Amino acid sequence: MLVTIDMSLLAEQIESTSLLEWIAVGFGVSEVLLARKNNVLLYPAGIIGILCSGFLLVDAKLYAETLLHAYYLVMSIYGWAMWKNRSASGASQISRSTGAEQRITWAIALGGWAFLYFMLTNFTDSDVPVIDAFVSSTAWAGMWLLAKRKLENWIWLNVSNLVAIPLLFHKQLILISFLTIFLFVVAVFGYFDWKKELDRPHEKFKTV
Rank of each mutant, 00 (worst) to 15 (best):
Y117L: 14
A35P: 06
D6G: 07
V163N: 05
F189I: 04
L34T: 13
F115W: 09
L179E: 01
S126R: 14
I155H: 08
S137M: 11
R86D: 06
V128C: 01
K84M: 08
V185W: 02
G49T: 11
L41V: 08
T121C: 04
L67I: 13
W140Y: 13
L19S: 09
F192W: 12
I104Q: 13
V29D: 04
L68I: 15
N122W: 08
S160N: 06
A91L: 06
S53V: 00
I176G: 05
P44A: 11
L41M: 11
A88M: 07
Q102S: 12
D127I: 03
Y191C: 09
F27E: 04
E65Y: 03
V128A: 11
F27T: 15
K148C: 04
M75W: 02
L162F: 09
D132F: 01
A164C: 09
E12Y: 00
S126H: 11
S137T: 07
Y72D: 08
V74T: 11
L145D: 05
L42N: 11
A91Y: 01
L10G: 02
F178S: 12
R36F: 00
T17L: 12
R149I: 06
A133W: 01
K37Y: 04
A164P: 03
L162R: 10
N122V: 00
T105K: 15
D59K: 15
L157W: 03
V130F: 08
F134D: 10
K171S: 07
A187M: 06
L145F: 03
N85V: 08
A139H: 05
R36G: 03
V25D: 07
R96N: 08
M119H: 06
I47D: 07
E65V: 03
I14H: 10
A60V: 00
L67P: 00
L57Q: 13
I181V: 15
